[in-house]
Write a protein that binds this DNA or RNA. Structure first.
Lengths: 186, 186
DNA sequence: ATATTTGTAGAGTGATTAGTCAATCATTAT
DNA sequence: ATAATGATTGACTAATCACTCTACAAATAT
């Protein structure tokens, strides 16, 4: 058991349920099964813990997004895989996905340096730029494209999370919503 | 000067800057120019104040969305007016719009009763249902349509807020993004 | 005029919080 | 074996917080 990870896991759970400031570090430590002081041994401040949790979670999402991609496929198929991966991850890791959104619309987000934001978005922007160069995607500003795709995914996640859908129905909605998105940006 | 309004105004400003729990009621009272006790005279608890601020802000947005609509216009033009109104409002009331998103992705959101959520979405859903019946909009589930449109608007707001665009460029992006959205859902 | 309600103030309170600290325990290096 | 470093603990503290309370002022009703 890695205590550092246990602390992150506990923090995620409690932040999602109660919010950042309504979650005392003492409760995080308790939930993680460590002493109060141990938490501050690994993270100098509560803020540092929050930022670390965001970076960690975002990193895990990005890794999953680009997993199981066969480079041989057409750009559309690669794009669809990334899209499907993202929504799958968001549904299989609801607290994590919710946390990312909660964090992004909180004052903590402004504590992330512009460099790190750019660095995190870079692979995605590069991929989109490729699609534009290949004349597959519409020649829109990549930032705009990126934002639209992100919002679309957030919306689909919200829709699928709020209702009760069978696995098949879910897959169908994901496919259909991909087609909507794809038609919009190509 | 209505002190009740001053308190809401102060709370909005501080919540957006610091977050709900990192904003003490004492600071809200100070910013509003009233005494500590006065705040609790109007709002029994801090939670009540937060919920009131959300309802109030959401209500003002909805009112603006449906303003200056000429019923004689085609469904597309009406839809476009609502779309444009919404984005205009979001840009002219950035803190308010940001607050709505901050609130929606916070644990406080679950304190809003399902009835009020339904009631708030109802006019929009009715309007979309109309569009489907008239065979203008694709026959998708209205909830899905609604969520997709909302996300799209949130995305455009984020894009327009993050960069520096001239008024004309802004208008152009709003028009283009409307076309993207319209093509997607019709 | 008098009584009653409502608005306003700000000092006060008990509970809670982030972070510290001195003391052990575990692990590794020499 | 010994030293040194890092991990872990939980009691402790100074500050802060949401909210209360009492007093008084203003407005309204009778």
């Amino acid at each position: 058991m890695d205590k550092k990870e246990e602390i992150l896991k506990a923090a995620l759970k409690l932040f999602v349920e109660f919010g950042f400031h309504a979650t005392p570090t003492s409760k995080i430590a308790k939930e993680a099964g460590v002493a109060n002081g141990t938490l501050f041994h690994y993270y100098k401040t509560k803020e540092e813990l929050i930022l670390a949790l965001y970076s960690d979670t975002k990193k895990r999402l990005t890794e999953y997004m680009y997993s199981n991609i066969s480079k041989a496929d057409s750009l559309e198929l690669v794009f669809k895989s990334i899209y499907t991966n993202t929504i799958e991850w968001s549904l299989e890791n609801k607290p994590e996905f919710y946390f990312i959104q909660q964090f992004s619309t909180s004052p903590f987000y402004s504590l992330i340096s512009p460099e790190e934001i750019r660095k995190q978005a870079e692979p995605h922007l590069d991929f989109l730029q490729e699609g534009i160069k290949a004349a597959v995607l519409k020649p829109l500003p990549v930032d705009l494209l990126y934002t639209l795709i992100n919002s679309h995914i957030a919306g689909i996640n919200q829709y699928l999370s709020s209702g009760e859908f069978s696995t098949n129905k879910q897959k169908q909605i994901i496919n259909e919503s991909f087609q909507l998105l794809w038609d919009m940006i190509t």
